[in-house]
Amino acid sequence: MGVTILTPYPLQNKSGAEAIEELSKRLLALGATQAGQFLVDGDIFEHSFKKIKIHVMHNSEYPASVFSILDNGQKQIPLITDLIFDLLMLKVNPIYSSKKMIKIESKGPRFELGDFLVKLGSVTMSQNQNFKGILIEVDYRPCLVPAFCWDLIKEFLQGLLGQQAPTAIPGYFTNTLPSNNPNQHYHRFNDTYQPIDTVQQYLEHFNNYRKQSQAPTI
């Protein structure tokens, strides 16, 4: 558990593999150790006649869970379940059908550096592995509240990415959430971080990649 910040890494006339290689070298130079691979994938199930989507996502960091987010256009309802949820989705196939073409995944090496966990994911879409971009996930494990460690993560990202590092808090955290008290603004930024937050960040970025009409230059 910790706070995870996901940020896209702009490719500057480099191929994805080259960028990953370069970042890995940088991390290793900082003293990180590679600790296996990771994989985050997202699938969309669409209702056959209503405008309802179910995003079913898996994260190798949480190997016993399936994350699903029900999206009916206005509201997103997250649900965390056991692995057998996948089988359940197969059962309801006539109503909710999967779109293989927009299945998207991010995978790559996973590095450990002190309290930080860094994952360099190259995003590919559909079955023919269309390369879409690079997503860097930084997890600061000792902390639970994003507000407390955002500065630390920002600094770490600046050290790692230099100019390309994000300067603003990711939009996901600053969006105002519905609250019981209308006078009080409620942000995820000051709330305890949940594993579903990581998945929702991924979903946001995946959706952005899906919207892009064409793949960036490879």
């Binding site: 190798s60 960091e61 190997p63 869970s65 399936v66 965390i80």
Partner: peptide
């Protein structure tokens, strides 16, 4: 509980 509580590795 591991699944629904999203236990990590």
């Amino acid at each position: 509980l591991a699944g629904p509580m999203a236990f990590d590795r």
